[in-house]
């Protein structure tokens, strides 16, 4: 399976999903005009990756700011991961944020509250 790499812009994050290692990273800010259009390839890649039997994944989110429609897409991603956790895969989400950024920490906590079996770790540094 090919890696997924999308360069960062002012309103969309850098995306690097490394198929071989299972290390997936989303870094930057997210407030695109068309959220669905931007994230469709990202969701498609994840669906394809799981279909190929991927079983050990770490997904790192380092997103200092995201708008409300991005929040909905992130929820969709976490729901998808949760679905695959219940089929026995090892998946961990790491929510990385600035220690001084209460808003970002709170956003991470509110996602964590929404998942049950998915390992969701908040790393404030």
């Amino acid at each position: 399976m090919d890696n997924l790499k999308i360069e960062r812009t002012k309103s969309t994050p850098y995306i690097f999903f490394d198929a071989a290692s299972g290390r997936l990273r989303v870094e930057g800010e997210s407030y695109p005009e068309n959220v669905v259009k931007f994230y469709t390839p990202v969701l498609d890649w994840l669906h394809g990756y799981f279909a190929e039997g991927a079983d050990n994944i770490t997904l790192e989110f380092k997103v200092a700011y995201f708008n409300s429609s991005t929040s909905k897409v992130f929820m969709t991603i976490f729901d998808l991961l949760e679905e695959y956790v219940t089929t026995g895969r090892m998946i961990e989400v790491v929510w990385i944020c600035d220690r001084d950024n209460d808003v970002s920490i709170e956003c991470g906590e509110e996602f964590k509250e929404e998942v049950e079996q998915l390992s969701f770790r908040i790393e404030a540094c």
Partner: peptide, 26 residues
């Protein structure tokens, strides 16, 4: 408001709508 935000975040997007319907709650 937090509960409503979470509920709306999980709801299906209205067809033809450009937004997620979360902006005002946010």
């Amino acid at each position: 408001l937090k509960a409503l935000y979470k509920k709306q975040r999980r709801s299906v997007q209205e067809p033809g709508s450009k937004g997620a319907g979360l902006g005002l709650i946010e």
